[in-house]
Design a protein around this nucleic acid. Structure first.
Length: 515
RNA sequence: GGCCCGUUCGUCUAAGGGUUAGGACACCACCCUUUCACGGUGGUGAUACGAGUUCGAAUCUCGUACGGGCUACCA
């Protein structure tokens, strides 16, 4: 286990999550939020959300709202964001455009960046021309840049002229030759890169928008971020960011980094496709792609409790070293530590995810389940006149529910008599003796009986032995009458909750149907 | 191809040089339950491979293999 002390913990902890509004928030995204959130809350710091919408071509309408809806459902609301206010706005990168240009120009002035006038076609040609067996995808690096059209190869006059004419151009970082860039990752320890293999990344695009590389550094600085956490897919571009920090704001001001392991699907990095392919949700909530109108079911709609969702996500790559697996959000805040986050990727296991939800449903009280269950049942046309029955029903069936949606089949029959009875399935087990038994049982029920589980069961069994019928055969029939299927809580508990009138009515109705 | 990160039961993981390598999910068996479940008990099952360091290696080092990520004017 690695322990890297947070050397700048004296500084107020401020972390950020920076989603790009290009689609639904998937497991990996929510876990990144979660870890950021837990870390911030553990140290009494701020959790900030800003929107990376600098790629307008991929911007998806509604995605930004969707992201905040997800955070809300998960209970991971930021302290600062577009929607929550704060003193470091604007929180959308598209609204900060002017700021980035200023820093990019600064870099050029200091000799750490340059203008590049190459067109996309030029770049394509370059990739073709310099492609070799050893180097299948040539980079715009210190070897190539001297062969391209940029302010390093052009004379100052030419450059001036091109700029004055408004020629389309980008600003690229000038990666130094033969330097080692290293930094300490809170999860992985020291990670280092040789600059000779890092390319001259575009910092400012031709449309004036920054790329992620420039924006993340500038925003983290201006928003006073103390700890920068993101997914492992960003590790290869870390040297670019370290260099930018060095050139622009000083390494002593740089946040502490941590790169989270990837959440993997059955085949590598979890993708949206995996959900459809393997039959489990990948997004926190339902997401409808506005372009294709394709709906991807979310964990919420599948019937996951938000408490279970963040619990299972937290444990995908982290544990507290004990055998505890069920954690409330408060416990996670208290026990979370970046040093215990794994460095290896974790494969998502839907079976285990279901187990977490099941545990949470069992653990939850009626109070926290009620409104969700009520909504689901109301969608099935149930009208509630007396809530106390619902309370009792939730208590009695929750142990058999894995998903919140399981409450529907498990409790619908309490509120509505079974619509169809499996008459053909019952017929072989039905005869005059049994019919007489149930007529007699109705008589007993209508008599002076205490309406509780014990009396109902005792009188049922007494009657059965009087009539010399095996209770097992009758119990099955009784269940079919009340429930309409081979499932549900003990049948006398059901009868007790159903009440006298309804129980007798269902028996009568079934007798007629069975003939 | 290059660079980076990684590798303990099928999956999530514990074990910080000395453990019969522990737990959870899943699976199997039994018990409980006149339904379906829950629950209980038990079982199958792992240190990728090869060297080195050491009295002693899952643990430290190196190599190999395998997996993943990145290699865009995407994030």
């Amino acid at each position: 286990m690695r322990v890297y002390l947070c050397s700048r913990m004296s500084k107020k902890v401020r972390v950020r999550f920076a989603p790009s509004p290009t689609g639904g928030l998937h497991l990996g995204g929510v876990r990144t939020v979660l870890y950021n959130y837990l870390f911030a809350k553990k140290y009494g710091g701020d959790f900030l959300v800003r929107i990376e919408d600098t790629d307008q071509s991929r911007y998806v309408k509604g995605a930004e709202e969707y992201i905040f809806d997800t955070l809300k459902w998960c209970g991971l609301e930021p302290d600062e964001s577009v929607q929550h206010g704060g003193n470091y706005g604007p929180y959308r990168q598209s609204e900060r455009k002017a700021t980035y240009r200023q820093y990019a120009e600064q870099l050029i002035k200091d000799g750490h960046a340059y203008y590049a006038f190459d067109t996309p076609e030029d770049l394509e040609k370059m990739r073709q021309n310099f492609k070799t067996e050893q180097n299948t995808s040539p980079q715009y690096d210190n070897n190539i840049r001297i062969k391209m059209r940029n302010s390093l190869t052009l004379s100052a006059d030419e450059t001036e002229k091109l700029l004055a004419e408004g020629t389309k151009h980008v600003i690229r970082i000038k990666i130094p030759l033969n330097e080692t860039v290293s930094f300490t990752d809170m999860i992985r320890g020291e990670v280092s890169f040789d600059t000779s293999v890092v390319d001259d990344k575009v910092l400012l695009k031709a449309d004036g928008m920054p790329t992620y590389h420039l924006a993340v550094v500038v925003d983290d600085y201006l928003m006073k971020i103390s700890h920068a956490f993101r997914g492992e897919e960003w590790l290869p571009s870390a040297p670019v960011h370290i260099l930018l920090w060095k050139y622009l704001f000083g390494l002593e001001n740089m946040p502490q980094w941590a790169h989270f392991p990837l959440i993997l699907g059955p085949n590598g990095k979890l993708s949206k496709r995996d959900g459809a392919k393997y039959g489990f949700p990948v997004f926190a909530m339902n997401w409808t792609d506005p372009k294709t109108n394709e709906l991807t079911e979310g964990f919420k709609e599948k019937g996951f409790l938000p408490e279970a969702f963040i619990n299972l996500l937290a444990l995908l790559g982290w544990n507290d070293g004990t055998e505890q697996e069920i954690f409330t959000k408060e416990e996670l805040v208290e026990k979370f530590s970046m040093e215990r986050v794994h460095s290896a990727g974790a494969k998502f296991d839907y079976e285990k995810a279901k187990w977490f939800n099941h545990e949470w449903i069992k653990k939850s009280g009626v109070g926290s389940l009620k409104s969700g269950v009520k909504t689901l049942l109301e969608q099935k046309g149930i009208v509630f006149t007396k809530d106390f029955l619902l309370d009792e029903v939730i208590n009695i069936v929750k142990d058999r529910c894995t998903f919140l949606t399981d409450f529907v089949p498990q409790s619908l029959f309490f509120f509505r008599a079974p619509q169809t009875l499996d008459v053909d399935g019952v017929k072989p087990k039905w005869n005059e003796d049994k019919k007489n038994f149930f007529f007699a049982y109705i008589e007993k029920l209508e008599g002076n009986i205490n309406w509780n589980v014990v009396s109902l069961e005792n009188s049922f069994k007494e009657l059965a032995s009087e009539k010399s019928i095996k209770p097992g055969d009758l119990l099955f029939l009784f269940r079919m009458m009340l429930v309409g299927g081979k499932f549900g809580p003990p049948v006398f508990n059901i009868a007790e909750l159903l009440g006298k009138t309804e129980t007798i009515a269902r028996i009568n109705k079934a007798i007629i149907l069975f003939g």
